[in-house]
Design a protein around this nucleic acid. Structure first.
Length: 562
RNA sequence: GCGCCUGUAGCUCAAUAGGAUAGAGCAACGGACUUCUAAUCCGUAGGCUGGGGGUUCGACUCCCUCCGGGCGCGCCA
């Protein structure tokens, strides 16, 4: 929470006291329970709290309160420079109260770290690859993909801030039946444009964008491919359509603030014969068998419901086969944790992938899947259907045009990715009350406005005076409450990264904005008393930094004026 | 039928690894602008956490069971 009282320090202090307790009572324990420090919901329960005594009492049959008393007293006596007091409350919680000078120290820390404030080394530079979106390049992104995109993008930013070495990747499924079908669909439209009577492929892609691409090919090549169905023509049309759609996808994602470090082509795995190689590797380990003319991976050895085909009867490899090769490649590039973000409709795929990971000899837990639940669009109280098949869906592009990037991103990030999102367009479009994005951005804009007013009156924080501000003047309840909240930021970022929950940042932001709005209503920052004004200016400058930093983790703009 | 997710205030969602009195926003009702932006703030009301059983100092959280919603269960991707 504070520099002198960061989690690691506190855990050490507590663990020392616990050891002392055990020694005094001649108790031997194999291991001390993991020390958990929580931010109490109720401010009356201190600045930070631990339930270690309750955990110990379960193990030792001792009285939780007595244990807590001992640990509390021990910690308090040995660290007078940290604790104002330590209280034992409830059934045996140890509640820590920090000295006020630590609060003021925190503000100095924020000002000096600026955009780095909130960053930590928790991840120890572990190499993480986050793969997300990875939509087939056979059509435009719709809003469900948008949710995956923003969850992945934001999570990556958060992991990086928490000290992980993160790379992001989009896997392009540019091999196989679907992409061929795309090519055939476009070719059929092209030939229709040339006046030919053509039967549209069964299960072909119906959308208008297919016609648009066909028109483009027609404009550039006139009737060059009229009547042609040779493999060269097919390949040309297919590749053209793929590149064209990929370019659109890339453009949509950039407009949505999402950039990938790498775009990985499935086709490239085949070009390098990697799919074959990985199947052979599994075969050598005894996990491949032949049946009904196909090759199967024995995923049931690792808890999957049934074994899975990797090479079909017709000799083609399945999507699963290349996906194994792809994930193998991720490990081979040195990543030790793989995070995949999938739409919840792919959940049935997790077990076979986990099985493959283990069969290849990698740790089960090093591969993690985040399932993103569906998005329901609501307009005027009505649910808008979103079937991809029928060709009638709301694209990400349409959504951004309607509500803007900031609002869309926040709406996708404000709830757990694991719960169904109801995206209410009427609220998202409202420029007022109901819209939480504006609430947060407004707090930021207000701060900027105060700073501007300060400079008009020559009350300014600068390098000359910033170290001599009298922060002790910040003694109001609301001010200390705000500083406490600012001090929680690093912990929130760490938790958000470890638990892969970007929405925690959104919740934190709203709470911080709320504290500021309350403070703003109650107190004037720029006033008659210049020393007090400067101290308050210092405080709101810190709020500004933390708002900026957390907004940037979500990829949302911080506007200076609204 | 089997598997994964889910059920919390009228609505949309929280609840930190099993912790303390289940919290926010919106909607409803009542108040606050001569002030650094009222896109704000203050107050009131709203709950047998889908039902039932269990585990323990303590359960929205874990286990069992039933009910309701979503999604899967291809030699598609």
């Amino acid at each position: 929470m504070f520099d002198k009282a960061n989690d690691d320090n506190l855990k050490q202090i507590i663990s020392r006291a616990v050891t002392q307790y055990l020694e005094n009572n001649k108790i031997e324990l194999k291991a001390i329970p993991k020390i958990i420090l929580t931010i109490p919901k109720n401010p009356a329960h201190g600045h930070l709290s631990t339930n270690i005594a309750l955990q110990l009492s379960g193990l030792l049959e001792g009285n939780a309160k007595n244990i807590a008393q001992f640990i509390g007293r021990e910690a308090e006596q040995n660290n007078p420079e940290i604790f104002e007091k330590i209280k034992i409350e409830g059934p045996g919680f140890i509640n820590f109260y920090f000295r006020k000078d630590l609060f003021y120290g925190l503000l100095l820390e924020i000002i000096s770290e600026k955009e780095k404030y909130g960053h930590s080394k928790r991840g120890n530079g572990e190499k993480v690859l986050v793969e997300y979106v990875s939509v087939n390049p056979t059509g435009p992104l719709h809003i469900g993909h948008g949710k995956c995109a923003v969850v992945g993008d934001s999570l990556s930013r958060i992991l990086a801030a928490a000290g992980y070495q993160v790379a992001t990747e989009y896997y392009i499924n540019d091999h196989g039946k679907q992409i061929d079908l795309l090519g055939e669909s476009v070719l059929a439209r092209y030939r229709q444009l040339c006046g030919e009577e053509v039967v549209f492929p069964e299960n072909g892609y119906q959308g208008d964008y297919i016609v648009t691409i066909a028109q483009e090919i027609k404009e550039k090549n006139q009737d060059k491919f009229k009547g042609k169905i040779d493999s060269g023509t097919k390949r040309f049309v297919r590749d053209y359509a793929k590149q064209r759609i990929l370019a659109d996808i890339r453009e949509d994602l950039i407009a949505f603030g999402v950039k990938f470090d790498n775009w990985f082509s499935e086709e490239s795995l085949y070009v390098q014969n990697r799919v074959q190689t990985v199947i052979e590797k599994l075969n050598q380990k005894g996990f491949i068998f032949s049946s009904k003319g196909a090759l199967w991976f024995k995923s049931t050895d690792f808890g999957d419901e049934k074994d899975r085909v990797v090479t079909k009867e017709n000799g083609e490899d399945t999507y699963f086969a290349s996906d194994i090769a792809y994930h193998d490649d991720k490990y081979r590039r040195g990543f030790t944790t793989l995070i995949d973000i999938w739409g919840s409709d792919h959940h049935g795929y997790i077990n076979r992938m986990k099985a493959a990971i283990q069969a290849l000899g990698y740790a089960k837990d090093s591969f993690q899947v985040l399932l993103v639940q569906f998005v329901t669009l609501v307009r005027a109280g009505q649910i808008i259907g979103m079937s991809t098949r029928g060709g009638q869906f709301i694209t990400l592009k349409d959504l951004l045009k309607e509500v803007g990037t900031d609002v869309a991103r926040y709406f996708f990030l404000m709830n757990s990715h694991d719960s169904h999102t109801e995206f209410n367009l009427d609220i998202a479009k409202s420029q007022s009350l109901e819209n939480p994005v504006f609430y947060i951005q407004y707090a930021y804009a207000r701060i900027c406005s105060i700073i501007e007013k300060g400079s008009a009156r020559n009350i300014v924080l600068n390098d000359w005076n910033k170290d001599s501000i009298d922060l002790v003047l910040l003694d109001k309840k609301e001010e200390l409450e705000i500083i406490k909240k600012l001090g929680q930021f690093k912990k929130i970022v760490e938790r958000s990264a470890e638990q892969r929950k970007p929405y925690l940042i959104a919740g934190y932001l709203h709470e911080l904005a709320s504290l500021f709005h309350k403070y703003y209503t109650e107190y004037k920052v720029i006033g008659e008393d210049k020393k007090l004004s400067l101290a308050r200016l210092y405080l709101i400058s810190c709020i500004k930094i933390v708002l900026e930093n957390s907004l940037s983790l979500l990829g949302i703009q911080a506007p200076e004026k609204m």
